[in-house]
Amino acid sequence: MTGTAAEANGLRAARRHGLRLGPRGGEWLVAAIVLLVSGWAAQQLRACAGELDGAVENRRRQIVQLGELMGAPVLPATGTQPLTGLFADHDVVVGTTAWGRQLALRPHAQASRR
C-alpha cells in the first residue's frame, strides 16, 4: 500500500469515529475578519497618503507660483491674495510699502478681512 492510500484510509477511519480534521468554521471566520480589518486599515492608510500627496502637490504648485510672483516685473494690485494658506494660517498678500508694492505675509484672518 502506498503512503497516499494509507493516509486516505486513516482519514476515512477518523471520520467513522466522528473525528473532524482541518480548520474549524470559527477559524475561517476569524481569518476573514482579520483580512477585512487589514484591508480596511490598508485602504485608510492609502487614503491618508493620497490626501497628503494632494496637499503636498498643491503646496508645491503654490511655491512655484510664489517664485513666479517674486520674479514678476509687476505685482498684482495691492490687497490681492495670490496665495492663500501657503504657510499654515498665513496668506501671501501684495502689500504697499514706502518703496512700492511688495509681497508680504499676513495672518489668515487679517488677510481675509482686508
Binding site: 475561517w28 476569524v30 481569518a31 497618503a49
Partner: peptide
C-alpha cells in the same frame, strides 16, 4: 491554517500601505 494565511496577507497589505505613506 487560515489564520496564518490571513495574518500573512494582512502583513503584506499593511506593509505596502505603510510604504506608500
Amino acid at each position: 491554517a487560515p489564520l496564518l494565511l490571513a495574518a500573512c496577507v494582512a502583513i503584506v497589505q499593511i506593509s505596502l500601505a505603510l510604504g506608500d505613506l
